[in-house]
Amino acid sequence: MTTKKVKVATVSLAGCFGCHMSFLDLDERLVDLVEHVQFDRSPLTDIEHCSDDCDIGLIEGGVCNSENVHVLREFRKQCKILVAVGACAINGGLPAMRNHISLEDCLNEAYMDGIGVENPQIPSDVELPLLLDKVHPLHEVVKIDYFLPGCPPSADVFWAFLTDLLAGREPALPYELIHFD
């Protein structure tokens, strides 16, 4: 009898993919991991939507636009355990440093008045997700079950967390693995 593999979905919202890169730093431990884990929706698989029985959703990045909100809600609906991964998911991180500048000023700086801008215009297309007024951490939008701090969390953090969960233990990070930087 083979035990059913645990389904893990991952996504990067308003993040830089650094957390995903750090996850890949698991290197040869990934081989052990896929013995027990099957990747569902993730930039690593190109699966576009979560299947409705995902076990773990790992979310990198905060919420900066309307699409992020929809994706995050899909993850909450489809995943049993939702994990905020990294500084941006936890407190908005670097993208949230725009929160004390008005959206209008941000857009003007980037697309109208910034140095080297050619053909200045604010992008506006139905295909483009609308920017939110402020960047928000995940827990302000949906319930989050666990948080993995770090910018990015090291591969050891992912390993400690996932091996705890897979072994049926309550995940607990040792002191050495809790970092906000």
Binding site: I90, N91, H139, I144, A172
Partner: peptide, 16 residues
């Protein structure tokens, strides 16, 4: 925060 095993900020941010 590390000492208290704090991994998140729990409350909504002021972003003041």
């Amino acid at each position: 925060a590390y000492h208290l095993n704090m991994t998140d900020n729990h409350f909504p941010h002021f972003f003041e």
